[in-house]
Design a protein around this nucleic acid. Structure first.
Lengths: 249, 249
DNA sequence: ATTTTATTGCGTCATTTTAACACAATGAAA
DNA sequence: TTTCATTGTGTTAAAATGACGCAATAAAAT
């Protein structure tokens, strides 16, 4: 092999998923609480040699949430040599966090591919922990617990990527209920961006994209004027995802 | 290991670099002509287990071009299981394109991380082929030869990514000489985008970004009015790279 | 030396987009 | 019936964009 021995080339590949949900005007992320440790982790898994990487990410997502048809997108490969820490596996095994026979494996070098997913909060009924974790919960983005390894960095980069994508891609499908009000959509944007937006300008710009259909219905129940219910025109939504919203040049 | 045997998890990781250069109003890519085969390949290499992936890409770039300080950015991990084709290595070995002892290795599953690089054409004096190739040349993007495996797909995706990045990132540094004229910069944009732009509007918008400094000098030699020479304000250029040019929201 | 030629610098004008804000309508609760 | 917070639909000024006009100019042609 070109300049290397084979055992210097084979390495582990994993995926880590940053699963965003939106609830009570807060952006949340699905995290796993590790056994025995006061530490959390992103849902992830190893990629088998006969498996597409997308397939591995889909599998991880499905295992935690039970959902299949989710917007999922790779955003970065975290591949610094310093990611793996010698002795990490042994330490986890000692603590009983993982089976002893995994220790060697975890000390190997592996790179991880970051995915981000957008899911509708209410569709995730009972997120399931995996073998190494004792629970799986939604955590608010602005009050995150301590995360293992470089998972904080992965999460931050996912959020940054999401914010950037917002500038030329629509979001909301898969993150909001099928029908939603304009204020709800705006709250989502404001939450992701961490800013406030003018209600009227937001509506004009959003409608200008031409990806929304106004259903005849209104949302009642609140002691105010009942807002219209909208839904995404999925065909146009997907076109906008591909072509981008801002022309730029 | 979680659900897999170790030998079902270890795999090869490579980097492939799409190295863009700009010459005579054409966008070009540095390609390798494979030995014995009427086929070309992107410059690439395997990632050692003790190596950062960025470092591997930098190494590949340096080996082909001799350049060290190049803008280099990962853009996608190509990780479909169908990328590797059983028997591919054996076939190459038979043809004498690669040493026989590499055959098994090439039949393994490996994923490849795509990088794109922007280099100043004239700085690459004599691109060097690697062990498997007989030459290394600039090829015009609109007249590409046949490429091995999925390298066409990688190249196309790199170009698409570059076009998208153009909408909220400056380009030109590392791709043009230190000093350049506005028409030259515009030609670069037009070439990358594959469109024509209005000369006057381009200048207004570009200057509006505030990343250019006008040197006192003019470019003489052509039988026309001598255009001003500009250079990038590197500080502001880098800030624009991070913050993005179009605010969006 | 003068004219020609293609190209550059700088500017104009109409249109579109954006930002900031006003006001009436509404639906439940007081 | 009134109150209240919130929504739908505007308006207006400022800024950005798109489509041009025209004089200046550097070398080559006359």
């Amino acid at each position: 092999m070109p300049g290397f021995a084979t055992d210097q080339l084979l390495q582990g590949l994993s995926v880590d998923c940053v699963i965003f949900g939106f609830h009570q005007n807060e952006l949340k992320v699905l995290l796993l609480k590790l056994k025995q440790l006061d530490m959390w982790a992103l849902p992830g898994g190893f990629v088998g040699v006969t498996e597409d990487v997308d397939q591995a990410a889909t599998r991880v997502l499905s295992e935690r949430t039970g959902l299949e048809d989710i917007f999922l997108q790779q955003f970065f490969l975290f591949g610094d040599a310093s990611r793996h820490r010698a002795g990490h596996g042994a330490r986890l095994a000692e603590l009983g966090a993982i089976p002893a026979e995994w220790a060697d494996w975890l000390d190997r070098r592996f790179v991880t591919l970051g995915y981000y997913a957008l899911v509708e909060y209410s569709r995730v009924k009972a997120p399931k922990p995996d073998q190494t974790s004792e629970s799986c919960e939604w955590c608010a983005l602005n009050a995150l617990p301590k995360l293992m390894l470089d998972h904080s960095e992965i999460l931050t980069k996912a959020h940054d990527t999401l914010k950037k994508h917002l500038n030329d891609q629509p979001i909301g499908l898969n993150l909001l209920p099928a029908q939603f009000t304009m204020p709800e959509l705006q709250a989502l944007y404001e939450t992701v961006l961490g800013t406030t937006l003018d209600r009227r300008n937001f509506q004009r710009k959003m409608l200008g994209y031409g990806i929304l259909n106004r259903t005849g219905k209104r949302m009642t129940g609140a002691p105010h004027k009942a807002p219209w219910l909208y839904e995404f025109d999925e065909e146009k939504y997907r076109l906008a995802l591909q072509a981008g919203l801002n022309t730029g040049w």
